[in-house]
Amino acid sequence: MTTFKDFLSSNSEDPIMESYSEKIISNKLDRDRRKKYEQILKEEYNVSKEEQKAESFSLKKWMSIAASVIVLAGSFYFLNQPTKTSPKELAQAEIAELHIMADQSVMRKGAADFEEIRKQANHFYVNGDYQNALEQWQLLEADQKTNERDYLYKGICYLKLGDSTRALEVLEKIESAKGFELEWNWVIALAHLDTNSTDKAHIHLSKLISEGKYKVAEAKQLIEAI
């Protein structure tokens, strides 16, 4: 078996030594590449090897804090009811996360002029400029060129801008949203929660759970909160 010492002392180019050279150089360059990927994953995608460990530490930390709070509450006994995050607060937290969907927006095909406006709208939308995105979609709507997907994204924009009532008005126009029913159910559920219409939100969240494909865990969590 070739060892590292053999590698250092040999000057030959026999296949075994060449294979070892390849292995040791590849090892070095793969390690470098791995480090680079690790850095990108951490900085750009918030993915790291120790994520779960961090989460469990965080959970322990929160449990400790919760225990301290309970002890303190017991001491003063005027805090006799546990605090509960309201559905509206949970919905707002989820609305803040909706950028994931926005980042995955795609340019779609259509008539040239309208396509350009739609591209602009998508561009603003993907970059989180919801006000400008809405203005572009208003132009399409004025020309009756708004399609169902535009309405979905418009609804998200209104949610992002904190106008759930307008979001609902837009989202309710596309009840038969073909191809993105699950996303629509999720977004409209958040809009209903944000306007405290928990019964209506429940209907859409239940649909997501029964479909079992999209935002199932999140939907269950929200239903529990309701």
Partner: peptide, 25 residues
């Protein structure tokens, strides 16, 4: 590929009940 890295990890975690670090590696 890096934008789909987490999807792959989640698949491993869900399908094989692997830990975060195992799925990552």
């Amino acid at each position: 590929f890096l934008s789909h890295f987490k999807d792959c990890m989640n698949y491993l975690k869900n399908s094989y009940k692997s830990s975060q670090s195992e799925a990552y590696d």
